[in-house]
Amino acid sequence: METKKWEPRIVAFLCNWCSYAGADLAGVSRYQYPPSLRIIRVPCSGRVSANMVLDALKSGADGVLVSGCHPGDCHYISGNMYARRRLALLKSLLEFIGIEPERFNVSWISASEGKQFAEVAREVTEKVRALGPARHLVKDF
């Protein structure tokens, strides 16, 4: 029986080389996690701009996850380092405009960390679920 509880919708930007592969491995290993993530594959976490995160929240996402290679392991040498700085700044901006910090999550998951991916997915989902729907940036007409 499927339980009917509110399922948050979380946009996940995953880098192609590590975290997207980690998410695949979670599947190969059949680690179960809530069906809340909508994964978007990007070449590198360094590709993720503030614009993309804000757009997700504007479109009605209840949370956002960005995940890349572990610092030092970037396929593109240093992309995740830029991501780390950029997303830290963005997080404080989001807090400033009144969005709970738990809604915006950044993690580093390698291609071999399927289990960790499932754990992060669960953790992020539960954090966002506890906060309820996000309507801060959504225009209601």
Binding site: P43, V48, S49, S59, Y76, Y82
Partner: peptide
């Protein structure tokens, strides 16, 4: 890799087929 795209202050640089147009379309569709 697209690091330059995310870093551009003027939205002047894009990644072919992996630009804001394509990615944001996927976000909105989600």
């Amino acid at each position: 890799c697209g690091a330059c795209v995310a870093g551009c202050r003027s939205d002047a640089i894009t990644l072919k087929n992996m630009g804001n147009e394509q990615i944001l379309a996927a976000v909105d569709a989600a």
